Simulated scan of single mutants.
Amino acid sequence: MFPSMIAGFALSFSLILAIGAQNAFVLRQGLRREHVFALCLTCAISDAILIGAGVAGFGTLAQAAPWFETVMRYGGAVFLTWYALRSFWTAWQGGSVMEADAGQRSSLKAAMLTVLAFTWLNPHVYLDTVVLIGSISAQYSDRLGFAIGAMTSSFVFFFSLGYGARILSPIFARPRAWQILDVVVGIVMMAIALKLVIM
């Protein structure tokens, strides 16, 4: 079981490591120290559900319902574009730190809805977790161990990202750093949205 767990952990971690909409949002909330535990837990559980579905053999959903991928792709692109524009506007206004200084903390409901949208409206999440991890797990006799390893990596990654962001707090004590982060987040979101439309 142990070799399969290590393989699943390594594959999942390598896939999730690349910066994306979900990771950028968790990082931002970690720096703001807002709803970190709930967001990290939601991301990790969502990944675990998708990984479980992939390993259990539900990676054929896109083949069974061809429209599903198109709806998810364009829906995700619209949402990412909206969030990118919001990030650019926040940067123009002085950065997220200005919101925090003004007491404009995001509500738990708003934060949860945002991270759920980043997770479940992103077709790449399905390709990475359901399709890719699901298909590779078929190569292992111990698929359960592989799935446990892959799920564990999501928990390790998201909680490390969310709470590890505090190490960067001294850098983000300056409003300019928040403005730069908001611009970077906006660029990442727009790039992913564009990629979804032209893929």
Rank of each mutant, 00 (worst) to 15 (best):
M1I: 14
M5I: 12
M5Y: 09
A7Y: 04
A7L: 06
A7F: 04
F9I: 11
S14L: 07
S14T: 14
I16W: 00
A18Q: 06
A24E: 13
A24V: 14
F25I: 06
R28G: 08
Q29N: 13
L31D: 13
L31F: 13
R32Q: 15
R33W: 04
E34F: 04
H35M: 07
V36F: 01
F37S: 12
A38I: 13
A38Y: 12
L41V: 04
T42C: 15
T42Q: 14
C43E: 08
I45T: 12
G52F: 04
G52K: 03
G54C: 05
V55E: 00
V55M: 00
A56I: 05
G57Q: 07
G59Y: 03
T60G: 04
A62T: 13
Q63N: 08
F68A: 14
F68D: 03
E69K: 12
T70D: 11
T70E: 10
M72K: 05
R73N: 03
Y74W: 13
A77T: 09
V78T: 14
F79K: 09
L80R: 01
Y83F: 13
A84L: 04
R86M: 07
F88I: 01
W89A: 13
T90H: 00
T90S: 10
T90E: 01
T90N: 02
A91E: 01
Q93G: 09
Q93L: 06
D101R: 15
Q104D: 13
R105Q: 13
R105A: 13
S107H: 07
A110G: 02
A111F: 00
V115M: 09
V115Y: 00
T119Q: 05
W120Y: 14
N122L: 04
P123Y: 05
P123R: 02
Y126H: 09
L127P: 03
D128Y: 08
D128G: 05
T129E: 08
V130E: 02
V131W: 01
V131Q: 02
V131P: 00
L132V: 10
G134M: 05
G134W: 03
I136L: 13
A138V: 14
A138T: 15
Q139M: 11
S141D: 14
S141V: 11
D142V: 09
R143K: 14
R143A: 14
F146D: 02
A147N: 10
A147W: 04
G149T: 11
A150C: 12
M151T: 13
F155G: 06
F155N: 09
F159R: 11
L161K: 10
L161N: 08
L161P: 09
G162R: 07
Y163N: 08
A165I: 12
R166S: 15
R166Y: 07
L168C: 08
P170E: 14
I171H: 06
A173C: 00
A173M: 06
A177L: 10
Q179P: 01
I180N: 03
L181Q: 06
D182C: 07
D182S: 09
D182Y: 04
V183E: 01
V188F: 02
M190L: 15
A193T: 10
L194Y: 09
M199N: 12
